[in-house]
Amino acid sequence: MLRLEAVSKTFQRRGCPVVALQPTSLEVNAGEYVAVVGPSGSGKTTLLSILGGMLAPSSGKVYLDGQSLYDLSVTRRTQMRGSRIGFVFQTFNLVPYLTALQNVQIPLYLSGKSPREQRRLAQAVLERLGLGDRMQHKPGELSVGQQQRVALARTLANDPALILADEPTGNLDPETREQVLQLFDQFHAEGRTLMMVTHDPAAAARAPRTLRLVGGGVTELSTVGRVQVA
């Protein structure tokens, strides 16, 4: 599903190169559930951005379903991201002036669906996540747990094969965190591929495979590793 070939990322800070990701080759099969752990500044978000087609690597190739992501035009890559990849954010990133229903409609609208189709699919996914009675509420009128479920509904709207989550439980109370992790288990069971960046050891433990990032270098912590740090 996902393949990284000698991918590295180096930023320039005040004229000095800063290595965010050392040359890494990595393969993630379809349907895998992978946790990425590591201290702050270790390159987790950089890795997630590269995998999501939002940050071109300094070197190497990233393949999604055999297609080299960064050989595509910006528009084509954006379209592929919208249709194949779903994102989950630590702070949910809901659009504050839109209702829950409208927030979930956004990826559907961006993928070119008609307003009627957007509405039908968004209602279905919100009902699935237990938010049928909160569709017309704005994020500010929802609890933190409800907001994260709206964000998850938005992630699922286009039925993505790959879900990239950045600290999805970082802002949640234990009960809500458990609800979210159960939903992740469900997504995994449905055959989706999940990559979850987390600081939470308990959350990481839910994933069958864990990668550890330290100083921009990736090491395999558990299960079937296909990691090699070049």
Binding site: T78, Q79, R81, S83
Partner: peptide, 16 residues
């Protein structure tokens, strides 16, 4: 900025 970045992550092209 964050809202625009999120829209891009969700599939919004620069032209949009």
């Amino acid at each position: 900025r964050k809202e625009i970045g999120t829209l891009m992550a969700l599939g919004a092209t620069p032209a949009f």
